[in-house]
Lab assay of single mutants.
Amino acid sequence: DVEPGKFYKGVVTRIEKYGASINLNEQVRGLLRPRDMISLRLENLNVGDEIIVQAIDVRPEKREIDFKYIP
């Protein structure tokens, strides 16, 4: 289970102007929005990149997770 405040290694699977889709595994994925990137710009991400993200909002009833990137 993903817990708010914990850090996870994820893989960038899609990049859109509203954010990047991050997969932690086949069943768990979430969104990294541009506003939640401290020192990383969306255009510097590539599909397949592995990054460390922090879960900031977990809504299991909607199967949604928001991530934050902290270098």
Results as ranks from 00 to 15, higher is better:
residue 62 K to H: 10
residue 65 I to Q: 03
residue 22 I to A: 01
residue 19 G to E: 03
residue 26 E to G: 13
residue 52 I to M: 10
residue 6 K to S: 07
residue 27 Q to P: 04
residue 48 G to W: 04
residue 42 L to M: 08
residue 22 I to M: 01
residue 27 Q to H: 15
residue 51 I to V: 06
residue 63 R to K: 14
residue 28 V to P: 01
residue 60 P to R: 09
residue 46 N to I: 10
residue 40 L to R: 06
residue 13 T to W: 06
residue 49 D to R: 02
residue 18 Y to S: 10
residue 42 L to R: 02
residue 23 N to L: 14
residue 45 L to V: 06
residue 2 V to Q: 03
residue 6 K to D: 02
residue 24 L to E: 01
residue 56 I to L: 12
residue 69 Y to Q: 07
residue 11 V to R: 11
residue 56 I to V: 10
residue 70 I to P: 05
residue 71 P to I: 07
residue 12 V to T: 01
residue 38 I to N: 10
residue 45 L to Y: 02
residue 22 I to Y: 01
residue 4 P to E: 11
residue 20 A to P: 02
residue 1 D to K: 13
residue 13 T to C: 09
residue 1 D to Y: 14
residue 5 G to I: 02
residue 53 V to E: 00
residue 39 S to Y: 13
residue 17 K to R: 13
residue 30 G to L: 08
residue 57 D to R: 15
residue 61 E to Y: 08
residue 69 Y to I: 04
residue 21 S to Y: 15
residue 12 V to S: 00
residue 45 L to E: 00
residue 43 E to F: 08
residue 68 K to F: 08
residue 45 L to M: 06
residue 64 E to L: 11
residue 27 Q to V: 13
residue 49 D to L: 05
residue 59 R to M: 04
residue 7 F to I: 06
residue 21 S to V: 15
residue 36 D to V: 05
residue 23 N to R: 15
residue 61 E to M: 08
residue 13 T to Q: 05
residue 7 F to M: 06
residue 49 D to G: 02
residue 60 P to Y: 11
residue 46 N to H: 15
residue 69 Y to R: 03
residue 2 V to E: 08
residue 20 A to I: 13
residue 30 G to T: 02
residue 37 M to G: 04
residue 35 R to V: 08
residue 27 Q to R: 13
residue 10 G to N: 01
residue 15 I to D: 00
residue 65 I to A: 06
residue 70 I to S: 09
residue 40 L to W: 04
residue 50 E to S: 12
residue 16 E to S: 15
residue 59 R to Y: 07
residue 54 Q to A: 05
residue 12 V to R: 00
residue 5 G to M: 07
residue 6 K to Q: 08
residue 35 R to F: 07
residue 70 I to G: 06
residue 21 S to G: 05
residue 24 L to C: 07
residue 46 N to K: 15
residue 20 A to K: 01
residue 5 G to F: 08
residue 54 Q to I: 12
residue 21 S to D: 09
residue 68 K to A: 15
residue 30 G to K: 01
residue 54 Q to L: 15
residue 52 I to H: 04
residue 66 D to K: 12
residue 13 T to F: 06
residue 69 Y to M: 06
residue 19 G to N: 03
residue 36 D to M: 09
residue 45 L to K: 01
residue 43 E to A: 11
residue 40 L to C: 12
residue 3 E to C: 11
residue 27 Q to C: 13
residue 40 L to N: 04
residue 53 V to F: 04
residue 51 I to N: 00
residue 44 N to L: 10
residue 4 P to V: 15
residue 5 G to H: 05
residue 64 E to C: 11
residue 31 L to E: 02
residue 21 S to A: 11
residue 22 I to F: 05
residue 52 I to K: 03
residue 66 D to I: 14
residue 15 I to M: 04
residue 45 L to F: 04
residue 3 E to K: 14
residue 3 E to P: 15
residue 42 L to H: 02
residue 15 I to T: 03
residue 57 D to H: 14
residue 17 K to F: 12
residue 12 V to Y: 12
residue 8 Y to Q: 00
residue 48 G to D: 04
residue 12 V to E: 00
residue 15 I to K: 02
residue 19 G to A: 09
residue 45 L to G: 00
residue 42 L to S: 03
residue 26 E to T: 12
residue 9 K to R: 14
residue 67 F to E: 03
residue 54 Q to S: 05
residue 14 R to N: 08
residue 58 V to C: 09
residue 6 K to L: 08
residue 36 D to C: 11
residue 13 T to H: 06
residue 66 D to M: 13
residue 46 N to R: 15
residue 49 D to Q: 11
residue 47 V to S: 01
residue 9 K to T: 08
residue 41 R to K: 14
residue 18 Y to D: 12
residue 48 G to T: 01
residue 32 L to V: 03
residue 29 R to Y: 12
residue 26 E to S: 14
residue 13 T to Y: 07
residue 28 V to E: 04
residue 40 L to D: 02
residue 40 L to F: 05
residue 12 V to G: 00
residue 34 P to A: 11
residue 50 E to C: 15
residue 47 V to P: 04
residue 26 E to F: 12
residue 38 I to C: 13
residue 51 I to T: 00
residue 6 K to G: 07
residue 7 F to D: 01
residue 7 F to L: 06
residue 7 F to T: 04
residue 16 E to Q: 12
residue 52 I to W: 15
residue 70 I to T: 10
residue 24 L to K: 00
residue 66 D to P: 02
residue 21 S to T: 15
residue 56 I to A: 06
residue 13 T to A: 08
residue 52 I to Q: 03
residue 7 F to R: 05
residue 19 G to W: 13
residue 60 P to E: 08
residue 39 S to R: 13
residue 53 V to Q: 00
residue 41 R to E: 08
residue 59 R to V: 05
residue 16 E to W: 15
residue 56 I to M: 12
residue 62 K to L: 14
residue 18 Y to K: 11
residue 42 L to W: 07
residue 66 D to N: 11
residue 22 I to D: 01
residue 19 G to R: 05
residue 68 K to P: 03
residue 68 K to V: 07
residue 48 G to P: 01
residue 71 P to Q: 07
residue 17 K to Q: 11
residue 28 V to S: 05
residue 40 L to P: 02
residue 29 R to N: 10
residue 64 E to I: 12
residue 71 P to Y: 07
residue 30 G to S: 02
residue 17 K to E: 12
residue 3 E to Q: 14
residue 14 R to C: 07
residue 37 M to F: 05
residue 54 Q to R: 06
residue 2 V to L: 09
residue 36 D to K: 03
residue 1 D to H: 14
residue 58 V to D: 03
residue 17 K to P: 15
residue 58 V to F: 07
residue 26 E to H: 13
residue 17 K to S: 14
residue 46 N to T: 14
residue 63 R to S: 12
residue 42 L to A: 04
residue 9 K to F: 08
residue 4 P to I: 15
residue 10 G to Y: 05
residue 56 I to T: 07
residue 34 P to W: 12
residue 22 I to P: 01
residue 57 D to P: 03
residue 46 N to P: 00
residue 34 P to D: 06
residue 23 N to F: 13
residue 57 D to T: 13
residue 53 V to L: 07
residue 35 R to E: 12
residue 58 V to S: 05
residue 7 F to Y: 10
residue 37 M to S: 04
residue 7 F to N: 04
residue 41 R to G: 10
residue 39 S to V: 09
residue 43 E to W: 11
residue 59 R to K: 08
residue 35 R to K: 13
residue 52 I to R: 06
residue 12 V to A: 00
residue 17 K to I: 13
residue 64 E to A: 07
residue 65 I to K: 03
residue 1 D to I: 14
residue 61 E to V: 08
residue 18 Y to L: 08
residue 13 T to L: 05
residue 37 M to W: 04
residue 7 F to H: 04
residue 20 A to R: 01
residue 21 S to I: 15
residue 68 K to E: 03
residue 70 I to V: 14
residue 18 Y to W: 15
residue 55 A to Y: 07
residue 54 Q to Y: 13
residue 33 R to F: 04
residue 53 V to T: 00
residue 17 K to V: 13
residue 36 D to E: 05
residue 60 P to D: 08
residue 5 G to E: 03
residue 13 T to K: 04
residue 55 A to W: 05
residue 38 I to R: 08
residue 12 V to I: 13
residue 23 N to S: 15
residue 63 R to D: 12
residue 40 L to S: 07
residue 60 P to F: 09
residue 66 D to R: 15
residue 62 K to A: 12
residue 32 L to H: 02
residue 35 R to L: 06
residue 22 I to C: 04
residue 43 E to S: 11
residue 41 R to S: 12
residue 6 K to I: 07
residue 68 K to D: 03
residue 23 N to M: 15
residue 55 A to D: 00
residue 34 P to C: 10
residue 12 V to D: 00
residue 70 I to Q: 08
residue 21 S to H: 15
residue 46 N to G: 08
residue 8 Y to S: 00
residue 12 V to H: 00
residue 29 R to D: 06
residue 67 F to H: 03
residue 28 V to W: 15
residue 41 R to W: 09
residue 14 R to G: 09
residue 53 V to S: 00
residue 19 G to I: 05
residue 46 N to V: 11
residue 4 P to C: 13
residue 2 V to P: 05
residue 53 V to D: 00
residue 31 L to K: 05
residue 8 Y to W: 02
residue 19 G to V: 05
residue 6 K to P: 01
residue 69 Y to H: 04
residue 57 D to E: 14
residue 67 F to W: 07
residue 38 I to V: 13
residue 2 V to M: 06
residue 23 N to Q: 15
residue 70 I to R: 06
residue 14 R to I: 06
residue 65 I to S: 03
residue 47 V to D: 02
residue 20 A to S: 02
residue 22 I to W: 06
residue 32 L to K: 02
residue 35 R to N: 08
residue 67 F to M: 03
residue 70 I to L: 10
residue 52 I to E: 05
residue 11 V to H: 05
residue 47 V to T: 03
residue 53 V to H: 00
residue 10 G to E: 01
residue 13 T to G: 05
residue 62 K to R: 12
residue 25 N to G: 11
